[in-house]
Design a protein around this nucleic acid. Structure first.
Length: 509
RNA sequence: GACUCGGUAGCUCAGCUGGUAGAGCAGCGGACUUUUAAUCCGUAGGUCGUGGGUUCAAGUCCCACCCGGGUCACCA
């Protein structure tokens, strides 16, 4: 072999994984192709059909028209003077049949340099093989992109109508790190992310149809608020000031309600500097929508119809759709205090701090002594009620101390008009009749500031600009936040948030 | 963070009470004109996560650490 077709291992593999021996062969093939005047990286290819469209075009016939397809080689079965391959494109897979006598010596030689993962374009008539497989009888073949690295395509067989994959790419960490490879070899992963796109599209359409305006508010914020969470902090050089990545959109969207936009929503990323596990990614997608002149009762109806619309659309996605739960409205409503008292077997709201800690310890809350009273109540609620909820259920009327941005409940000022929606033990939505009394809001902020001073680093800060906005007069408003990642997890029965995020946050390799 | 399981070839994995590293697929060479987990013949491929220790001898036993999965906790 010449030098050019036999590069040293370091040429072929500069990273830690040593697949140089494979890449060497592919680079050698690429070089041989170039020497024969075949360009291994093309500029474009005109195709007439997708694999799915071609399959449909043939229908029940044994022979069909000429089609031009493009895609990736997923498998290759060379057989002397013929070869079979599987071509994969975005929505499907189709078999190719190549004959030396039909392709001619030149193209046949090119075909001989092809590998699994190469991107090619083909042309030829549709046909059906003896065994009934829809196939393109290739008459023209163009290499579109040579793959130097083989994708981990497993071998597939259809057993009892089910696709069985052998030697599959199954390392969950590597699949997340190399999502491009995960997507390339797993049609069901592409289907899940297609479903994700359909979900946000459906939400947008649903809210647009209700007269909502989609807006964008700052990701970089001088003060963070609207939720209880630790933020990411960054620094702006020219202003020489700290900026926080938002933990919620809430306070800016409500400023827009003050500004006269009566129905607004935003779908964007929030950032929370906390642990990573199967339900938490440091950045995640949040939907928030606010509606002037509505209260939390009206927003429950909005959430119900939104979720039903989302579930209906996802149910149409092949494979994924089978896992989508059937939602029936109205969702049950249970009261926060009532359900907690019932689950605890004692009126926890009437207990003093010591009694409350005792109950918390009994239930298994860790280090209850370090928690403020509202946090303690919330821990109890999580342990006793939230985690037990399976089908979508609204929990309504939260204690005031847990809800610094919600209006007091009519008839009971110790509670707020707030609901959260839970399903399978997880929070899907959080909403309230938004507090629009600036004097009350200031007091709530100051109470939060005290908690913060006492060591609760998730308590919010006083936002003077937000108060100023509210002082101009804010109409009564209903507001909702829905975590899109978790909603998709619920709707598609996906256990790990990493599986619904294309590029989840990972430790560096 | 706790518990637990794991890290061996490019991928998926086996490797017993310690005895010099294995398979299938992928790769490479060859045969084969309707195959489909193609088949057949041949061939190549490894710092067994890292570092210590025990031992004549460690993938295997011990210790520490790194990384990952699962469960629980934390994260309203």
């Amino acid at each position: 072999m010449s030098d050019i077709t036999n590069p040293t291992p370091s040429d072929a593999s500069s990273d830690a994984e040593d697949i140089g021996f494979v890449m060497r062969d592919r680079i050698a093939a690429l070089t041989r192709l170039r020497e024969r005047g075949v360009e291994p990286f093309a500029y474009s290819f005109d195709r007439t059909h997708s694999t799915a469209e071609a399959r449909e075009l043939l229908g029940e016939n044994d022979e069909g028209p000429i089609v031009r397809l493009a895609g990736r080689i997923a498998s290759w079965r060379s057989q002397g003077k013929t070869a079979f391959a599987n071509l994969v494109d975005q929505d499907g897979r189709l078999q190719l049949y190549m004959r030396r006598d039909e392709l001619g010596e030149d193209v046949w030689a090119t075909a001989g340099e092809l590998h699994v993962s190469d991107v090619i374009g083909v042309s030829g008539p549709l046909m059906r093989t003896r065994t009934g497989e829809v196939t393109v009888r290739v008459t023209e073949l163009t290499l579109l992109a040579k793959a130097l690295r083989p994708l981990p395509f497993g071998k597939e067989a259809v057993v009892d109508g089910q696709v069985v994959r052998y030697s599959a790419f199954s390392d969950t960490e590597m699949r997340a790190r190399q999502r491009y490879a995960d997507l390339a070899v797993h049609p069901e992963v592409r289907a899940l992310f297609t479903a994700r796109s359909l979900l946000t599209r459906t939400i947008r359409r649903h809210l647009d149809d209700l007269g909502y305006l989609e807006v964008e508010t700052p990701v970089l914020q001088p003060l963070y608020g609207g939720a209880a969470a630790r933020p990411f902090i960054t620094h702006h050089n020219a202003l020489d000031m700290p900026l926080y990545l938002r933990i919620a959109d809430e306070l800016y969207l409500k400023r827009l309600i003050v500004g006269g936009f009566e129905r607004v929503y935003e779908i964007g990323h929030d950032f929370r500097n906390e642990g990573i596990d199967r339900t938490h990614n440091p950045e995640f997608t949040m939907l928030e929508f606010y509606e002037a002149y509505a209260d939390y009762q009206g927003m429950m109806t909005r959430v119900e119809s939104l979720l039903v619309a989302a579930a209906d659309v996802l149910r149409t996605v092949p494979v994924i759709g089978e896992r989508v739960p059937v939602l029936t409205t109205p969702f049950p409503r249970i009261e926060w205090v009532g359900s907690l008292v019932q689950a605890a077997g004692v009126d926890v709201t009437a207990l003093d701090d010591a009694g409350l800690k005792e109950v918390a310890t009994r239930v298994g809350v860790e280090r209850p002594g370090t928690l403020s009273r509202p946090k303690l109540l919330d821990e109890l609620f999580q342990a006793l009620v939230e985690s037990k909820i399976d089908t979508p259920t609204f929990v309504v009327d939260y204690p005031k101390a847990l809800s610094p941005l919600a209006k007091p409940k009519r008839g009971n000022p110790e509670l707020t008009e707030r609901f959260e929606l839970f399903a399978r033990g997880k929070e899907l939505a959080n909403a309230f009749s938004e507090l629009n009394d600036p004097i009350d809001q200031r007091e709530r902020f100051e109470a939060q500031a005290k908690l913060r001073a006492a060591g609760d680093d998730e308590a919010t800060m006083v936002d003077e600009d937000y108060l100023r906005a509210m002082e101009y007069g804010m109409p009564p408003t209903g507001g909702v936040g829905i975590g899109i990642d978790r909603l998709l997890m619920y709707l598609t029965d996906t256990a790990n948030i990493r599986d619904v995020i294309l590029f989840p946050t990972m430790r560096p390799e």
